[in-house]
Amino acid sequence: MSDWLMVIIRGLLMVIVLFVCTKLLGKKQISQLSFFEYVTGITIGSIGAEVITGLDRKFLHGVLGILSFISIPLAVDYLSLKSKKLRDIVEGEGTVFIQQGKLIEGNLKKERYTTDELMELLRRKDIFSVSDVNFAILEPSGELNVMLKKSRMPVVQEDIKKISQEGKPAETIIMDGKPIEKALNSINRDVDWLREQLERRSVNITDVFLAQIEADGKLFLDLYDRSEDERELVSLLEKCRAEFLKMSKKSSEKEGLLFHKNAEILEECIRTVRQHE
């Protein structure tokens, strides 16, 4: 039999073998594949291709290779049903990002998610304000599942007692301890106003992990999880930094540059304390 005909026959046979194997593996979608299923998918595809075109190789050996490979995820799937521990290892565990309305920075860091990315995930769920969220968990599949606060949960028709007003999405005005001037300008506010608001709550901007202005003008704050000592040190550094900045505006050009440079160094120091664990 000629080689080309052999390749076609082996190819058709391999399609049948792979079809049966994928049926055995189940109906999970690509995004729901576990590590084993992902690796197996790639490997059996490679073996299949090798067997189809490598005419010097025995077809049966290829089929045996594929069968031995799919036996691993099948066994893991079976054992995962029996053992929660194994399931957590193979499929991974969810990571809580927000608990009782409070952002858990450590978990965001652990999963290498920025606040921007978290906000994006929330927006995909039509949530524009962190303060609406009671609980949010990042599933092993990468999907964020959110439980809203009771007051923000959808209501059924008989629950509606008043016509809801059209609201604007909450504006994020501090992210990672830094004010977002563009966002402040969009609501006709500035950094001085923000400082004043925070001073009333005895909080510095650098203490704030995330701040949002809600549609009704309410300020939502999520502070860094710091110890008292760290808070005190940041406060001292912040005061000194503010003094340097003040001096840089009043001094001669040369001295002003020095003061400004020191203010920047202190800002970096504050960041160091903030990131210190």
Partner: peptide, 21 residues
């Protein structure tokens, strides 16, 4: 203020922890 920060770090025994600062 700088002296205050320095003293704070010394008193809290954090000069090594925050050596760069």
């Amino acid at each position: 203020q700088l002296a205050h920060i320095q003293k704070w770090l010394e008193d809290k025994d954090k000069t090594l922890e925050y050596a760069a600062i």
